[in-house]
Computed example of a mutant assay.
Amino acid sequence: MTRRTLVRGAMLSGLGLLAACGTRPKPSIEDTETYGSFEAMYGPLPNERFPLPAVDLRKIDRRFLRQEVRYPTSEKVGTLVVDTSNYYLYLIQENGRAIRYGVGLGRAGFEWSGRAIVARKAIWPTWTPPTEMIERQPELEKWSWQNGGMPPGPSNPLGARALYIYQDGRDTLYRLHGTAEVWSIGKAVSSGCVRLLNQDIIDLHRRVPNQTPIVVI
């Protein structure tokens, strides 16, 4: 064994020790391969009611793509955890693992925190702007609840799916929903709640039943 090989081995061992010190290690290659390649996960969905194109992965930081990670927590398996500080949503799995999704956060996404449940889910939902938004943008009046809201479709702000969050039987107006605006994941945007890539919200929608607990921190 050459001296160069020994030095390289020592460097790799040191990196391993550093990684072990982190409280939430980055996922390994094996983690991401659990769901196949990112290209497959974010490919086109031609069979949707409104066919979706593939996600342009050049427009998003790789760490915000869906992957299984180590996530020790006292929350029960199946719980959703929205980490607003780091722009992540976790779906808690067994054995200290979680499926992690990158999210974008609008103003409403920062305004509420606490514990609640997913009270209902929608496929290609209608969007109704809140009164406060209509006051700021009067042109949205045509989509008010009195007018039936904005019909589903590619331009609808809620995207392909929506999860509606209720607390003590009341609508918090907090939503997890889809978006085609790839650039907005991992960022604070002007409006909305918690947005996921359309391919991710479709995946989450099928995994999460009504009455699923959610924690927003």
Rank of each mutant, 00 (worst) to 15 (best):
E75I: 03
K76T: 02
G78N: 06
T79M: 01
T79I: 02
L80K: 00
L80M: 06
V82N: 00
V82C: 02
D83A: 01
D83M: 02
N86G: 07
Y87H: 02
Y87A: 00
Y87F: 08
Y88K: 04
Y88W: 09
Y88C: 04
L89A: 02
Y90E: 03
I92V: 11
I92F: 00
Q93S: 06
E94H: 06
E94A: 13
R97P: 02
R100N: 05
G102M: 02
G102T: 00
G104E: 10
G104Y: 04
G104S: 10
L105Q: 06
G106N: 11
A108G: 13
A108T: 15
A108V: 13
G109Y: 06
W112K: 09
W112H: 11
W112P: 07
S113I: 09
S113V: 09
G114W: 03
V118M: 11
A119T: 07
R120H: 12
R120Y: 13
A122M: 12
A122H: 13
A122L: 13
I123P: 07
W124H: 11
W124I: 02
P125V: 04
T128D: 04
P129A: 08
P129G: 06
P130Q: 08
P130D: 08
P130N: 10
T131H: 15
T131E: 15
E132M: 10
E132K: 14
R136T: 10
R136G: 11
Q137A: 15
P138Q: 04
P138A: 10
E139V: 07
E141L: 15
K142G: 04
K142E: 08
K142H: 07
W143H: 13
W145S: 15
W145D: 14
N147E: 11
N147L: 12
G148P: 03
G148S: 06
M150A: 07
P151Y: 05
P152K: 07
P152S: 07
G153E: 07
G153T: 09
S155R: 12
L158S: 04
G159W: 01
A160K: 01
A160Q: 01
R161Q: 06
R161Y: 02
Y164I: 03
Y164V: 05
Y164C: 01
I165P: 02
I165R: 01
Y166T: 08
Y166K: 04
Q167H: 09
Q167D: 11
G169D: 08
G169V: 06
D171Y: 06
T172F: 02
T172D: 02
T172W: 01
T172C: 03
L173G: 07
L176I: 14
L176A: 04
H177D: 08
T179C: 08
A180P: 14
A180H: 14
E181G: 08
V182N: 05
W183A: 14
W183D: 14
W183H: 14
S184G: 07
S184V: 00
I185L: 12
I185F: 12
G186A: 05
G186C: 05
K187H: 15
A188G: 13
S191M: 15
G192C: 10
G192W: 08
C193N: 15
V194L: 12
V194I: 14
R195L: 07
L196E: 09
N198I: 01
Q199G: 11
Q199C: 12
I201H: 04
I202V: 12
I202N: 11
D203R: 10
L204D: 10
R206W: 14
R206G: 13
V208Q: 05
Q211N: 15
Q211F: 15
Q211E: 15
T212A: 12
T212N: 07
P213M: 04
